[in-house]
């Protein structure tokens, strides 16, 4: 087991219960898709796991250590973040840095890796996402799909043990979604451990090996991807799959 979160709670503004006792575990090499209607707390869950948001309660086991998520120290958070990657819905590339600098910035500044070594790592990461020829481009000179691939390169460059993806294709024009999903599928094939919030049912069904379905801050159902799609146990899951399944256009299906 690589990561285990137990009983995570998060309330906003003292009233809005966004996470209501979420527990999940991720094995090395797992690709876990998190599905669920908008507002069910998926983003907040990922942000709590990476301490962008502070959970009110919860335990996190990661890297052989256990943390009280409400009281994890700055030093521990920094240590955890060095072993994780995060890919945002809106890419969040550093606008004042080139694609290569976006990838190397964390290596050089946070990890104190010498510049030429970091550059080499950065170029390799960008090659991996198919952007060798865009190293010196600024984010404003790249398409959305390219920006998201740079963001993925930035996440993998530090060789994290797990990468969190928060709806990585939701901000993209439909014709650009494929290139990002292809990169993610490649990562999955390489054995990268991934926790992916997504609306891409095909990705959840055919790339990930586990699926979690969330609603109202709780996990309604989780299990192997195939079982989840072919034999959902919960009534709510079946209803959800029906609505989103209907919304899929034929060419989205494999």
């Amino acid at each position: 087991m690589l990561l285990k979160a137990t009983n995570v709670h998060k309330t906003f503004d003292n009233t809005l219960r966004v996470l209501d006792g979420v527990s999940l575990s991720v094995e090395q090499g797992d690709v876990v898709s998190i599905l669920g209607p908008s507002g069910s707390g998926k983003t907040t869950l990922l942000r709590c796991l990476n301490f962008l948001e502070r959970a009110d309660e919860g335990r996190l086991e990661f890297g052989g250590r256990e943390y009280d998520m409400a009281h994890t120290s700055k030093r521990d958070i920094a240590a955890i973040r060095k072993k994780t990657g995060f890919v945002f819905q809106s890419y969040n590339l550093f606008a004042n840095k080139t694609a290569l600098q976006n990838v190397t910035e964390g290596l050089i500044v946070a990890r104190k890796i010498p510049r030429d070594q970091a550059d080499e790592t950065g170029r390799r990461a960008l090659a991996k996402v198919g952007l060798s020829d865009r190293c010196d481009h600024y984010p404003s000179q790249l398409s959305g799909g390219q920006q998201q691939r740079v963001a993925i390169a930035r996440a993998i460059a530090a060789e994290p043990q797990i990468i969190y993806f928060d709806e990585p294709t939701s901000a993209l024009d439909p014709e650009l979604i494929g290139e990002v999903l292809a990169v993610m599928r490649q990562l999955a094939d390489d054995g990268m451990t991934m926790l992916v919030v997504t609306h891409e049912l095909n990705f959840a069904r055919y790339v990930s090996n586990k699926v979690i379905f969330m609603e109202h801050g709780r996990i309604v159902e989780q299990g192997p991807a195939r079982e989840f799609f072919e034999n959902p146990r919960e009534e709510r899951t079946r209803a959800f799959l029906q609505t989103v399944g209907d919304r899929l256009s034929p060419q989205d299906k494999e």
Binding site: G85, N92, N96
Partner: peptide, 30 residues
């Protein structure tokens, strides 16, 4: 400067001050 860039900086292991100095301030000054 979009707050997401600060979060992205923290996610790649930079401290708040490092993010301010290398990402946010240069953009703000421009």
């Amino acid at each position: 400067v979009p707050v997401g860039q600060i979060e992205a900086g923290e996610c790649v292991g930079m401290s708040y001050l490092q993010v301010m100095r290398r990402i946010v301030l240069p953009q703000a000054m421009r």
